[in-house]
Design a protein around this nucleic acid. Structure first.
Lengths: 108, 108
DNA sequence: TCCGCTACTCGGTGATACTGTATAGCGGTA
DNA sequence: TACCGCTATACAGTATCACCGAGTAGCGGA
């Protein structure tokens, strides 16, 4: 599948929120998870910018822990604001994707 | 529904392509159609920038026709390259939306 | 000692939708 | 006549986002 970056704008952050929401985890692992999910071209730099933004917007709680296999990891967990943001994201996604699917089916 | 602009990045252009593909039409009418579809906050300026981009990228054929109720209209129709681009857009949409839905359902 | 994997940071880029303003044709009305 | 509202397009500037590339750094194995 060729370049998906434009289509991921506005949704990749939500995906990261969802991943964090289901389990406390860190940037490098999130990148690997996204790759396995089918977003093969998403690289570390992209995920880290999203994570720093989430931190700056106070949607996550951050805990640094030693790794054993490399530098320390920054673990992320959603706080209350983060959970609200995630719910809003899925509401938007539901709204937008249903309307685009309707357009696709010629329903208008 | 609050601001959808970020989520529409990368998809709004495809929606415009789809609308043009189903019927030769013009900017103002496309805006009204998008509004009725549920994209209530999309305004003329946004659609015109997309149309000018499509024209610049040679994905559409343009015909100017008098209106009777106002200034002349620029009617847009897809050419062969436009139809290919539209097919690619729907393939990407299918790919991305199915993966996001899977993430949403916790399938990973 | 070097390489590869793990792990994070940060300045800069390109694409996209949006904002705001300007221009302009047409009909109705005060 | 003057004005307003609807129709219709264009365009310069802005914000946001994902991405790129380079840098820093810990750890283990060849």
């Amino acid at each position: 599948m060729d370049d998906l970056t434009e289509m991921l704008k506005g949704t990749l952050e939500g995906c990261v929120l969802e991943i964090i929401g289901s389990e406390e985890t860190y940037g490098y692992a999130i990148t690997r998870q996204l790759n396995e999910l089918g977003f093969a071209d998403v690289v570390e730099g992209t995920v880290y910018t999203i994570l720093l933004r989430l931190e700056r917007n106070k949607l996550v709680q951050v805990t640094k822990r030693p790794s054993g296999v490399g530098p320390p990891r920054k673990f992320y967990a959603l706080n209350e604001a983060g959970r609200e943001e995630l719910a809003k994201f899925w509401a938007k996604w539901q709204y937008v994707s249903s309307r685009i699917d309707r357009l696709k089916e010629g329903g208008r």
